[in-house]
Design a protein around this nucleic acid. Structure first.
Lengths: 110, 110
DNA sequence: ATATTCTATCGTAATATTGCAATATACAAT
DNA sequence: ATTGTATATTGCAATATTACGATAGAATAT
């Protein structure tokens, strides 16, 4: 085994899990924060921001892209990365909803 | 290699990544949703809700507990699990903050 | 005492992730 | 054309995760 069993879960559960998984590494959190901190998309520069080898950063960027959290456009020599707002919004709203559901009923609990 | 390099990232980045990682599996999302859906903490019952073997579910519960997302109290024969609200709030607020930071500056972008 | 029930842990196999050096690719500049 | 710069891909080793059967422990019921 070792492969996640996605079949038996809902699409929503799987898609949220995929987003969360993509965010489950400090380097990818750092990349996201950096893209947000800088005032626009970034052409180049990301590798220098992180304490990881270029190949490793490229891999993390690929995973973020696969998860739909960032997008990258070729901009001459380098590549211009920026946040895919929709995905971030999706996560934000999911947890907001969870929290509010919890708030309603957290009375009779441990 | 294969081990995440946490040393070079901030505590906040590491802790958010840990929470996200714990949520990066549909079974764990399903567990969380179930704990929220049911009106109080659950003693037993979780295994029957999931399409996974008992040992596997137990392992997922352990990971959620390690990440601080749920807590479990022994309740006679079985164990009473419920959501650790603080952790959920932490995630919610983190993404809310990210989103709002993004909203301010997403003008000059791809 | 014995059986039953619930949960955790151990052991193990399959697969995935992390990280990097080396190499490849693509464009830009000379 | 050659060189330099930026990024991706490949190949590999180390480690982590996922899943489950088997087993163990602890409380309950018979």
């Amino acid at each position: 085994m070792g492969a996640t069993k996605t079949d038996h879960f809902t699409d929503k559960q799987n898609s949220i899990a995929l987003l969360a998984k993509a965010l489950g590494h400090p380097a990818r959190i750092a990349i996201l924060e950096y893209l947000i901190k800088v005032d626009s998309c970034i052409c180049g520069d990301i590798v220098n921001e992180l304490p990881l080898a270029q190949a490793t950063v490229s891999q993390h960027l690929k995973e973020l892209k696969n998860a739909g959290l960032i997008k990258g456009e070729i901009e001459g020599n380098s590549i211009c990365y920026c946040i895919e707002e929709k995905a971030l919004t999706q996560i934000e709203e999911y947890f907001k909803k969870l929290s509010s559901k919890l708030a309603i009923k957290n009375s009779k609990c441990c």
